[in-house]
């Protein structure tokens, strides 16, 4: 099929990309824009590994077509850090053992960022609910929940470090 041409904002930068219109946002990100941080775990909308933010809202990029993203603002895991400086969520995940194999991590980070942007004081219950669609097979989730809480604390205190 003939490629479509789409312009969108990706991690704060305006980009233009041409791709097969049947491609999902996940495929466009990984294959056409070269950002492989977003993972595919099932491509069925079941596991949450491919979660990114579209206009600040977490979506499963395997269930969204690339053509739907014209002029939208996409944030993937690559957009969380500021240059070499990690986002507080990333720092907490790395320090507190919330990433083991790391495959579910990008989707969880994006989903958690949306939660904390909206609810800086999110409770353990709200964190668990927000991440209910993200499957992790390594950690048993406790270290993930604790890392989100720690990041929320650091964000409220306004501290960042790499």
């Amino acid at each position: 099929m003939k490629n479509v041409h789409v312009a969108l904002t990706l991690n704060g930068e305006r980009v233009e990309v041409a791709f097969d219109p049947a491609k999902t946002l996940l495929e466009v990100l990984r294959e056409d824009l070269g950002l492989t941080g977003t993972k595919h775990g099932c491509e069925l909308g079941e596991c949450g590994a491919c979660a990114v933010l579209v206009d600040g809202v977490p979506v499963l990029s395997c269930l969204v077509l690339g053509v739907e993203c014209e002029d939208r603002e996409i944030t993937s895991v690559e957009g969380l850090a500021r240059g070499p400086e990690l986002h507080p969520l990333q720092t907490a995940f790395a320090d507190l053992g919330a990433a083991q194999c790391g495959y579910c991590t990008p989707g969880i980070l994006c989903t958690a960022k949306a939660l904390l942007d909206e609810k800086p004081q999110a409770s353990r219950g709200e964190i668990a609910e927000a991440l209910a669609g993200n499957i992790c097979r390594c950690t048993g989730y406790l270290q993930i929940f604790e890392a989100v809480e720690e990041a929320a604390k650091r964000l409220r205190e306004g501290s960042v470090r790499s």
Partner: peptide, 17 residues
């Protein structure tokens, strides 16, 4: 390897193009 994992920079097999 924690930093690479949280930045989405760990290269899994399917990330190789």
């Amino acid at each position: 390897d924690g930093r690479a994992k949280v930045r989405g920079e760990t290269k899994f097999a399917d990330d190789l193009y």
